[in-house]
Simulated scan of single mutants.
Amino acid sequence: MFCTFVAVSAIILNRFTLKYELDLDFVLVAITSSLKDYTLAFKINRQISHDFARMEDLSVPNASSGHSFFSRYFYQLPESETDLFLLANKGTEGYLIPEMKNVDYFILVRNFIDQEDLDHMLGGINRIPEVVVAAEVDPGKLKSKENLIF
């Protein structure tokens, strides 16, 4: 009886809890606009002198059909390692961030961007007549933030 108790006690004492945290080391900008993705990319390029180029669609696994695909554009700021991704929120099988269905696009900024550059980008995008609003969003508060890790 004593040996059984010791074994059970050892099992209880050796429990480990793994905590999983996503690395959200990026800035996220939400954009509401009725423009098509290629037209928005073109207008952003002209307005703030960026050069977003189309790349392979972002594939996100989903429960219903396997994968959803979202249009994606890429631009790297000159003389820095700051990457910008223009992502469509509406894809082939739903939303990239379902809790933000009123948002049409996101700009995900990886690596460092200073506040002055971010303000310049937001101001330029908000000056595009077809853009209703462009604003920074805290990715940590999103339920589906894992969809933004690629």
Rank of each mutant, 00 (worst) to 15 (best):
L13G: 04
A134G: 03
L84C: 02
V29F: 08
F69A: 01
Y73V: 03
E21R: 09
K19D: 08
V27M: 05
D104G: 06
F74C: 09
F85P: 07
E21W: 13
G124T: 01
F112S: 13
D51Q: 01
T92N: 08
N89G: 09
L148G: 00
L108C: 10
L24S: 05
F106T: 00
I149N: 13
D83R: 14
L118D: 01
I149R: 12
A41F: 10
T4E: 15
S80G: 14
Y95M: 04
A135Q: 15
T82Q: 07
Y38F: 13
M121R: 05
G66M: 01
L22S: 15
I97A: 05
L77Q: 09
Y20T: 08
Q76E: 12
V27K: 04
K141H: 07
Y73D: 01
S65G: 11
V60K: 04
F112L: 10
E130H: 07
I11S: 14
E21S: 14
G124K: 00
M100I: 07
K19E: 05
D51V: 01
F5E: 13
K90H: 11
P98C: 11
I125N: 01
L142I: 15
S80M: 07
R15G: 12
V60A: 10
T17K: 14
F106R: 02
L84F: 07
D37Q: 12
L87G: 02
L148W: 04
R110A: 15
L18D: 13
F74I: 07
I11N: 13
S9D: 11
A135G: 05
S65A: 15
E81C: 03
L13P: 01
I12E: 10
D25H: 13
V8D: 03
M1V: 11
G124S: 09
H67R: 08
D117F: 09
V60I: 15
I97F: 05
K43V: 01
